[in-house]
Simulated scan of single mutants.
Amino acid sequence: MKILLTGANGMVGQNVLAIASDYQHDFLSPSSSELNLLDAPSVHKYIDKHQPDMVVHAAGIVGGIQANMAKPVKFLVDNMLMGLNILTAANDAGVTRFLNLSSSCMYPRDAVNPLSEDLILKGELEPTNEGYALAKVTSTRLCEYICQENSIRLYKTIIPCNLYGRFDKFDPNHSHMIPAVIRKIDEAKRNNIAEIDIWGDGQARREFMYAEDLAEFIFYALDNFAAMPQNLNVGLGTDYTINEYYQAVSDVVGYTGEFKHDLSKPVGMRQKLIDDAKLKTFGWGYKTSLQAGIQKTYDFYLSEYCND
């Protein structure tokens, strides 16, 4: 197939393209300057010109708690517009297949874990990333509505757990947790800092999957798309505490200092673990362990950010 991949320069997009040569598909991977997803007319024009067989929508404004809390307008508006524009343009142009990447943050904050796919819009969202979650809920629902109106359309959504891996950002203020922690702990080791602070009590639980595993799932989904559920969680089905992630990174980096908990800081949801029952039925499972994934991510960080 000729596949339009949005967000080709993001972490997920780069991981997809890194293994694309192993599969029989041709990818259109425009930069944001070539395809401005915030400009509806240009999105329609691009799709009309290139006529992709399928769209994989991986673009988005992403970040951790700090970034979401600092710029909720951007996280809501930009992500909402991107989703609406690309979905509407693809549908109008007659593109029959669309794989929408959503996020487990769109599940209700007080839902019982593990989080199953039927919990969408069944409760209040987590305030610390509500704008991003609202945008993701909208795109997910729009895929469902398009399929309801036209039985020829296969517009489906995957709901990954938290991600980390190669091509991630390692910015303490704007990146996801694991890459931020890798940089934080590596710098503490280099500067002989004896104590590192952790937001909250460190007991909140999170599920993080190595991003290359998600890329491999996407290719599995492309080959089995008709059989894939409308909405599908993609993750590990197991989680760890924030303290355990800090310790796992410390073990890989070789940091032997202490941790201090800052109880004045927000921690987000206490737990966010996806239900992987449908994923197992679909026939796919992750392969990269936490330690192996952190080691590969740390190696990438050292090669890309620490060459001085």
Rank of each mutant, 00 (worst) to 15 (best):
F219E: 02
M209L: 14
L101H: 08
N85Q: 11
D92Y: 06
S264P: 07
E244W: 04
G13V: 01
K71D: 14
V112Y: 15
G235N: 01
E130L: 12
N36Q: 02
G268E: 04
Q203R: 11
N113K: 09
A226H: 15
S33Y: 01
H25S: 10
P30F: 07
Q24M: 03
G60K: 03
A70S: 12
L121R: 13
D48H: 10
A277K: 14
G60H: 00
F219H: 11
V253M: 03
F217Q: 03
S116D: 14
T96C: 09
C143N: 15
C161W: 08
T288D: 11
A221H: 07
Y107P: 01
N233Q: 10
A188V: 00
V95Q: 02
V253R: 01
R153S: 12
S116L: 02
D308A: 12
E304C: 10
D213V: 00
T140E: 14
Y286W: 13
A8K: 05
G94K: 06
K278F: 10
F300P: 08
P229C: 10
R206M: 09
S151P: 11
K136T: 01
A89Q: 03
M54N: 01
R97L: 13
E126C: 14
F208C: 00
D275A: 07
K296V: 11
L125R: 08
E126T: 06
K280Y: 13
G293M: 10
G123P: 02
V73Y: 14
S116E: 15
A227P: 04
M82P: 01
R141F: 15
H57I: 15
V77S: 11
F217P: 00
I274Q: 06
F282Y: 15
V234Y: 01
L115E: 05
I294N: 08
D78I: 08
I198T: 07
M177R: 01
H174W: 07
A292W: 08
A215T: 05
A226F: 11
A221S: 13
I3T: 06
M209R: 00
Y246V: 04
K2H: 10
L38Q: 12
D48S: 10
L154G: 04
M54H: 03
V16P: 02
A59E: 05
L134F: 15
A89V: 07
A135E: 03
L222S: 05
A188T: 01
R205C: 10
N79D: 11
L163E: 09
G237D: 05
N233H: 15
Y305Q: 09
R206K: 13
Y298W: 12
I185G: 06
Y255K: 11
K156C: 03
A135K: 07
D223F: 06
K272I: 13
I178H: 00
F208D: 00
I218P: 02
L214D: 03
P72M: 09
K49S: 12
G131Q: 04
M269T: 14
K272R: 14
S303I: 09
L76M: 15
F217N: 01
H50M: 06
M269P: 12
E258A: 10
T297M: 08
G94I: 07
D78L: 04
C161R: 04
L232Q: 02
E149W: 13
S21W: 01
M80W: 13
P127T: 05
E126S: 13
G165M: 07
